[in-house]
Amino acid sequence: MINVKNFLFILFASYFASFLRFYVDNNFIISIFGSFLFGFIIARRLGKSLNLILLTGFCSCFTSFSGFILFLYRFISEEDVLKFILYLNIIFISNLLMMYFGFMISRKII
């Protein structure tokens, strides 16, 4: 549940995620890694507050939808529709598979 202590932990997790995202600065690697971690964590059935810290705090702040939209916007502004559709689908499929992969690995370890 969200109390003051948990909220502080979520805040620190999000700060850490923000700086990590700033230093990696590659939207594709970030989203792939974030999806893998998300899949890995949801399969482990951790407690509710730990889930909140890791998923809402770290993973959600680490991956960024606006970075994804900005990446695709560059192709639209260059009027490169083919590349736009190609990258859109590649990112979507690779992320979904990566999350599934993380989920499966986490199940196998237990």
């Binding site: 999000s14 995620a17 923000s18 995202r21 700033f22 989203s31 974030g34 999806s35 971690l37 998300f38 899949g39 949801i42 998923l55 993973c59 959600s60 702040c61 680490f62 991956t63 960024s64 939808f65 606006s66 970075g67 994804f68 979507f92 992320n95 979904l96 999350m99 599934y100 989920f103």
Partner: peptide, 26 residues
């Protein structure tokens, strides 16, 4: 740019939860 793009938009939007919604349907 750091304040709005890296800080605000990065933490406000979430790509992994979007993929998770798709994953639930998948």
């Amino acid at each position: 740019l750091l304040l709005f793009y890296v800080g605000f938009l990065g933490c406000f939007s979430t790509f992994s939860s979007f993929i998770y919604d798709l994953f639930v349907l998948f």
